[in-house]
Design a protein around this nucleic acid. Structure first.
Lengths: 217, 217
DNA sequence: GTCTATAAGAGGATAGAC
DNA sequence: GTCTATCCTCTTATAGAC
């Protein structure tokens, strides 16, 4: 009846953290289908049956990893590193940059959108869905604020911007560029951020489109 | 010894086409892992063992589907619909639009980048690699031409532009928006094209950034 | 809750008759 | 080349002792 978690409970919590850590890493570099429960157990250093005492299925393992990365994203968004950005669009860029850095660090669990058993398990997972909606709403607020200030492409609905940001968090372009070995992580993130927010085509940024600039030289 | 294909050979060719058609469709809406060879055989209407007389493995089935879509892409690029576009960047946009339309039509086979046995089989497949390089070179020429004319973002290397175009051909954003059911295919393609080439952020297109425009009123 | 051992089933690939 | 029947491996999940 102690409100403080018992020593035993803390040990179990630590073990679950270790499991989720491993799942997170394996999901990031092998993907859901190639990640076997046997491998997770082996890397954690426990028996597979013990894993199933903590998580009832492979899908629940993936859900736990997703919940943790969503929590980390929200923690970043609330941190000074992001929240002190002056304008909404700068905050959105900061989040996108963060997701790309996490991905390049091999810590972004990305799940296949097509796997139906996984999707079913995820939408049925209350904790996961709650976190996902929390994050979406926070981002949605920033997106609408940015739209109100004319910082976003006027033709794009907020929904499209939101989904695009989620998609860029697991954009395969980063992995391909990193696999090429020719560029630094910083360069890769910079380019992907630029292509995401400024597009592939040439243009003049809105903030610098001053009609008062004198022509010629 | 007849140069013209025999009737028998034509029948076999037609059967292989039917197989690749089915594989293409299944890859588009279930993905590689969820596509079972049993299902392919069932949908084609032949026995699984017969499938293996045509293609030696599941990976070869996927490779055949990819070769066909690469061929179709190159056929589109050579067609008047694309080749008559006035500038290189318009041609690039036309290709991107085409890939997005194919994806929304459920005909874009997209393979997981992480599956190692599949990757190994693909890079070992001479026909696939040849087609992939052909397509990349054609696109590379257009990209460099567009760069030379100042139509592309000056900070982005050609390689980054190329990979981004490939990635947008299987951008999950289109599927999510379509699944939402609120928008027409045309709207979805328009938005994804805009976010790809013009970016999420507000800006003034280069072509319209005429310093001669009179200020305010 | 942790272990060893095993059930249960899916799925890729093949044998061998025709 | 097509079929039926089968093999065999891999993987998720559980039984049951401690």
């Amino acid at each position: 009846m102690n409100a403080r978690p018992s020593f035993r409970a803390q040990v179990l919590q630590a073990r679950e953290d270790a499991i989720v850590d491993t799942v997170n890493r394996l999901l990031a570099d092998k993907g859901f289908e190639a990640m076997t429960v046997d491998l997770v157990a082996a890397e954690v250093g426990i028996a597979k049956a013990s894993l199933y005492k903590h998580f009832s299925s492979k899908e629940q393992l993936a859900a736990a990893a997703m919940v943790r990365v969503l929590d980390r994203a929200m923690a970043f968004m609330a941190s000074p590193a992001c929240a002190t950005e002056p304008s909404p669009i700068e905050r959105l860029k900061a989040v996108a940059r963060w997701t790309m850095e996490v991905q390049l660090a091999g810590q972004m669990p990305s799940l296949p959108a097509q796997n139906s058993t996984l999707r079913t398990a995820l939408v049925a997972d209350k904790v996961y869905m709650e976190r996902l909606m929390q994050l979406s709403e926070q981002l949605g607020e920033w997106i609408e604020a940015a739209q109100a200030q004319g910082q976003l492409h006027p033709a794009l609905p907020a929904e499209v911007v939101l989904y695009t940001l989620f998609a860029r968090a697991c954009d395969p372009v980063l992995g391909v560029l990193k696999a090429g070995g020719s560029y630094s992580d910083e360069q890769i993130v910079g380019w992907c951020l630029a292509s995401c927010f400024e597009g592939l085509a040439a243009h003049v940024p809105a903030a610098r489109a001053k009609p008062a600039v004198p022509r010629g030289r």
